[in-house]
Design a protein around this nucleic acid. Structure first.
Lengths: 142, 142
DNA sequence: AATAGATTTAGAATTATTCTAAATCCTACT
DNA sequence: AGTAGGATTTAGAATAATTCTAAATCTATT
């Protein structure tokens, strides 16, 4: 019943807001992130969008992802020095990285906890973001 | 009045505990981390230890740092995809990364807050560590 | 002293990403 | 409609950090 991915509207809007154009490449990259939210790498995204837009280059995928991050449509996520992963969930949240499988999960963070965390900063520290990353294992029941 | 870096004892012990030998390279790398705790990269450490052990190679610095991390004498810290930094502070703590200068600061974390943070994990998630990274600016008074 | 294993080393290799410069595509004017 | 000018895409080269490889060296123990 919900319209089929109204998000390409949001995309066009946010791009325009930054004085950027919408393009088939940017659309297909953004759609790929929305469709399978498993925190793919640029390479993963490249493989996925090729199904739809065979000619797209890896460099363009990098460019599009960077553009989406700049427009605040997507978050870049890093674990250790592994390849950057991309996440279209814009709610404040933490990440859980399963070191056995490499899988990544979004973990909701209550607003009051985020506030408490930022409270530990002594004066003189002006944080514009806080990244919280759990590392460990996941078990069957989830 | 405190003995001059009694930590090389700790080093020898922890290495032995893992069935590893102490070596001049490992000592000098560990000492460099203890002496200037500004979260240096492997390259930084290499530059610093060369003053004392001119012949040490970068590969060895990488090996030593990895060994120290394995032995729980040092923590590896990453910001985005920047080079790995090394930190001899073993107390649980967060990091503040000043994006303007690249400087890194340790931020104390009260144990009860760490507990509260781990509490947000739903069942099925078994975290062995949580990394907390603030990004922002620092101001003069600190 | 000999052996075996640990460690160090230089340089090659790898990986993810960014850069470069040319080609293509739009948009807005004329 | 035609074209100038900028934005975008592209392939491939370049870069940066790190790891790998294989040989040399060291060290502890027989």
């Amino acid at each position: 019943m919900t319209p089929n991915l109204p998000n390409s509207e949001a995309l066009a809007q946010k791009l325009a807001h930054s004085g950027l154009r919408n393009t088939p490449q940017r659309e297909v990259v953004y759609k790929a992130l929305l469709t399978k939210r498993d925190h793919p790498t640029a390479d993963d995204v490249h493989a996925r969008v090729r199904a739809e837009l065979n000619s797209i280059s890896l460099a363009t995928v990098y460019n599009c992802l960077e553009t989406l991050v700049q427009c605040d449509l997507v978050r870049a996520v890093n674990f250790e020095r592994g390849p950057t992963r991309y996440c279209p969930n814009l709610e404040p949240h933490a990440h859980f990285h399963d070191e056995a499988t490499g899988a990544t999960f979004d973990i909701d963070l209550p607003a009051d906890l985020i506030a408490k965390i930022k409270d530990v900063l002594p004066s003189g520290y002006d944080a514009e973001a806080v990244d919280i990353i759990f590392r460990g294992k996941t078990t069957a029941a989830r």
